[in-house]
Amino acid sequence: MAGSGGAHLRAAERPVLAVEDLEVRFAVGRGQEVHAVSGLSFDLLPGETLGIVGESGCGKSTSARAIMRLVPASGGSVRLEGEELLGLPEKQVRRRRLRMQMIFQDAVSSLNPRRTVRALVAEGAAMWNRPMTAGAVDELLASVGLDPALVGHRRPHELSGGQCQRVAIARALALNPAVLVCDEPVSALDVSVQAQILNLLHDARERYGLATVFISHDLAVVKNISDRMLVMYLGKVCEVGDVEEVHREPAHPYTRFLGAAVPEPDPDAPIPPDEITGELPSPLDPPSGCRFRTRCPLATQRCADEEPRLRTFGHGRAVACHYPLVGGVA
């Protein structure tokens, strides 16, 4: 699962966000380093939703934070609307963030507990000297399904988790961004509320033509919201492609096992046997070659010796595997 390489990038189509060879390393003491993200590349066309899926520790949240420049990247490139973000002075980055907003898993703690809902929504725009009218704030609240008269004056602790996530979305939309980065936005919510937020994100995207990076550990959620999806494992990309195609015909063994592990709410669906065993190896000491090889039933000596690179096949798909399930042998 090497997953380095940018063969799948679509530069000709003028992506709104292009990430190339993104690298994030954290020092963990005693001279050791964790490679949280290595060689991540993807691009995002206007109005498109890219789902990034993977298990805990695969680097999906760190990627989002590095793209937002909330954690420093160790290498690579992040271009927003054609402009490089990595290496820009902090002051200029803040201005660029007007065009790229983020919402988090824990919406309640992402909101300032001392501000009212209206103040939270208006805050960002006011900071940039384009104050919103009270009418505009209320209109935005209504568009995310909150009754301004009922919740406009409340503070985050007086709202439910789902309502806080709606406020966070309104707050992000207030700045009219081109890209919305969502880091596990529905993972803490009950399924009925999760459906409300997913539908809302879908509508917001249609209405504002937003491009979205949607990060989740839940394959079914990613399948529902995304156009394309990217599967990560231990800091690397396994596979990218149209979400329907990847689901129907996964090319990377890991993608298939991930799909087979999702419990379906159907008592007649056979529970497939465990094809994948063990757990994620330590990112401090990742396996040589393909990082998935220690859990992969198809692994051979070649997987240990040689890191597979991402290569394209079919219609806009790419896979990093020596023995992909579709797309021919590398």
């Binding site: 399924v191 459906a195 879908h202 839940d218 399948k223 329907e244 689901h247």
Partner: peptide, 14 residues
């Protein structure tokens, strides 16, 4: 209201 893997993308959830 739970998204299903088997359902097409962008299926409107109840």
């Amino acid at each position: 209201s739970a998204p299903r893997l088997g359902a097409p993308k962008h299926t409107r959830l109840e």
